[in-house]
Design a binder for these strands. Structure first.
Length: 574
RNA sequence: GACUCAGUAGCUCAGCUGGUAGAGCACGUCCCUUUUAAGGAUGGGGUCCAGGGUUCGAAUCCCUGCUGGGUCACCA
């Protein structure tokens, strides 16, 4: 990389890197650095057991330095937190040679560098538990300056807060923003908590294909890719459902999968093109059983994460304590609109939509109309966890018809904070009904519903061998994490949310410039002057260009032989 | 996709009804042996997102584009 493309601070750090090497210090050593203690453990344990901390060895990143002549304080950050370290020249350099302190620590190390230290723990006059360093090892040099976030009395100064930079360079976000690292730890603890719960019930964790020739199990637009050897299109899965049910046919009585689904749809604060879901299927159960199971699971997650069932989400305090309210979709609509739509036909539903001022179009069937009414008038009011049950049959092609009403299905969704969190069925296991439902979906797609499902004949064949009555449930892990950590955007709970790629400015290669007579060593200078393409150079004023180049040469002390005005002219006019 | 706000130093941000850029932190040099958002002195650092336009003159006004945020729409 040419130095003209670096900022002053980056150049200085690279020079420091060279200086370290000149002193015989490898800035990127290979050896293991044995760590005996972590920052937070020292701070927690020192008062009570001071004797345990007479020799400590820890490693981490320098997050701040306060140098006072021959003594210095620095902040060291490791996986558990920060601790102050105290370095005194004559302690780390007991001999005559004071280079390690005067040159290496004071001049060549920077905020962001990773070091290992050995020393003993003590308490400063200010009362802060610190490590008095007796030896220091450079473990990795940082070549880019880190945003310096400071904090006093709980108030954060100069926070690294621009969402675009935070998401694009999540590593920097994680280094600098402790609460971000904590959110992702919580995400993993949520998943672990669920996994424990399933395993305790002897359900089997499995993996099913992500690349599918028929994307099934949900209504959504898929991503399409292509397999070269098979020379056929493949789809990224939009749901795990159909494969997991095949495993129930195969004789497992409980299977679950944490996995990524992919949907080629809009992106916003609650949608990312790839997202994580957990789906679980348990044989010989129905959706009523699954409601109990789901609330038990969610209550456990909340308890494991917070020690209690209450979580603050925005302005709302949500309580995940069992049991949750249960209400059928039709009752909910009756409650919120006053309309009893049970048994209504399409015309009746459209009339209800008209009076409630809900928009709809001709392609919508009964199910979709009911869903619109529910979505518009009811959904947002369910802040505390609530099971909405018994959805219309048209909306649920993989769900068993309701035991008491063939227009409905044995389905529930768990609503929390006004949004869908989990979705579950008594699974449809009648292959003849299943095929008919798929065909209904095909009709919908012919009507223009581009989210209607494909027909998966192999899945129907599997059902023809017989699937035990089964209940299945799916839950969005990203949304659950948002709720449990009080985040309002999905980007805050995904390490690397989808972003438009960063654009690099196009520029002509060196050879295009040398072709018109520009010496190779001057090409970076020309870039720096703002001429990224030969064509742009051709349109420039040669006198101005000559001045700019000589000026840059001088300013950046490049030590190049300045070109003659005629030479520059010849590049431009050739 | 619509509307709206924003993009200025490594980071966080000022910059008025147009006069060619500032602060704090960070960085360089110097002083200081228990400081703590350390302090003091001093110095360097910018394609003001990009491209057009208006103007004697644009970070500033106008248009177009790029990227992101917010709201809405779409999204079982």
């Amino acid at each position: 990389m040419n130095q003209l493309e670096l900022s002053e601070q980056e150049i200085i750090r690279r020079e420091s890197l060279n200086e370290l090497e000149k002193l015989g210090i490898n800035p990127f050593p290979a050896e293991e650095f044995p760590v005996t203690h972590y920052s937070e453990d020292i701070k927690k344990g020192f008062e009570e057991h001071a004797d345990d901390f007479k020799e400590v060895s820890l490693a981490g990143r320098i997050m701040g330095r306060r140098i006072m002549g021959s003594a210095s304080f620095a902040e060291l950050k490791d996986k558990k937190g920060r601790i102050q370290i105290y370095l005194r020249r004559d302690d780390i350099c007991p001999e005559d040679d004071k280079t390690l302190y005067n040159t290496v620590f004071k001049k060549l190390l920077d905020i962001g560098d990773i070091i290992g230290i050995k020393g003993f723990v003590f308490k400063t006059q200010m009362g802060e538990i610190s490590v008095h360093v007796t030896s220091m090892t450079v473990l990795a040099k940082s070549l880019r300056p880190l945003p310096v976030v400071k904090e006093k009395d709980g108030k954060v100064y100069d926070a690294f807060s621009d969402p675009e930079q935070r998401y694009r360079q999540r590593y920097v976000d994680l280094i600098v923003n402790d609460q971000v690292r904590d959110t992702f730890r919580k995400r993993t603890r949520i998943i672990n908590s669920m996994r424990e719960f399933f395993n305790a019930n002897d359900y089997l964790e499995v993996e099913t294909p992500i690349l599918q020739s028929i994307p099934g199990g949900a209504a959504a637009r898929p991503f399409i890719t292509h397999h070269n050897t098979l020379d056929m299109p493949l789809y990224l899965r939009i749901a795990n459902e159909l494969y997991l049910k095949r495993l129930i046919v195969g004789g497992y009585e409980g299977v679950y999968e944490f996995g990524k689904d992919f949907r080629n749809e809009g992106m916003d604060r609650t949608h990312n093109p790839e997202f994580t879901v957990m789906e679980i299927y348990v044989a010989y159960k129905d959706y009523k059983w699954m409601m109990d199971f789901t609330e038990e699971m969610i209550e456990k997650v909340a308890l494991d994460l917070h020690g209690n069932t209450k979580v603050q989400v925005g302005d709302n305090m949500i309580d995940f304590k069992r049991p949750y309210k249960r209400i059928s979709m039709l009752d909910s609509i009756k409650e919120h609109t006053g309309y009893d739509i049970a048994g209504m036909d399409i015309a009746g539903l459209r009339k209800v939509c008209d009076t409630l001022e809900i928009e709809y179009d001709e392609s919508m069937g009964k199910g979709k109309l009911i869903d619109e009414i529910f979505g518009e008038k009811c959904e947002a009011s369910y802040i505390q966890p609530t099971f909405i049950t018994d959805y219309p049959v048209e909306m649920s092609p993989l769900c068993k018809k309701h035991r008491d009403n063939p227009e409905l299905t044995e389905r529930f969704e768990l609503m929390v904070n006004g949004k869908e969190l989990a979705n579950a069925y008594s699974e449809l296991n009648d292959p003849i009904d299943q095929l008919a439902r798929f065909q209904d979906q095909l009709n919908l797609s012919e009507k223009g519903d581009d989210e209607a499902m494909f027909i998966d004949m192999d899945f129907v064949r599997a059902l023809e061998y017989g699937m035990p009555p089964t209940s299945g449930m799916g839950i969005g892990i990203d949304r659950l994490t948002m709720l449990m950590t009080g985040q309002s955007t999905i980007q805050e709970v995904l390490f690397f949310p989808q972003m438009r790629p960063e654009k690099k400015k196009e520029r002509d290669g060196e050879e295009k410039f040398t072709a018109i007579g520009v010496p190779a060593e001057w090409v970076p200078v020309i870039y720096k002057a703002g001429y990224l393409k030969v064509d742009e150079l051709k349109e420039s004023n040669p006198n101005k260009l000559h001045q700019e180049l000589c000026g840059l040469n001088k300013k950046h002390k490049l030590g190049l032989q300045n070109p003659k005005p005629d030479e520059v002219k010849s590049w431009v006019e050739n």
